[in-house]
Amino acid sequence: MNIEDKLLLIRFNSDQSAHIKLNKDLCVDCEERGCLYVCPVNAYQIEGNEMTFDWSACLECGACRIVCSRGALNWEYPRGGFGVCFRYG
């Protein structure tokens, strides 16, 4: 099962603006790029040499926050009531 199909199983109440802010400039010469491996929904992608991040599919697990060694993330939770909403959990 691929991530796109899995995302269809999850209930989101997406906010208009990003709750995690990424300072892409710091990702350019990051060799580790741990975010690519630990994000359960592959929200981090490399396009060319640029890091992109799709916050709308975020499961709010915090794994990227923990592995980012560059301090490139301003990591906050979505506003109250927004974001992922587990029905089973």
Binding site: L9, V84, F86, R87
Partner: peptide, 9 residues
């Protein structure tokens, strides 16, 4: 049949 996918630290 998969019904939900999730993650947690």
């Amino acid at each position: 049949r998969a019904r939900e996918y999730g993650a947690h630290l």
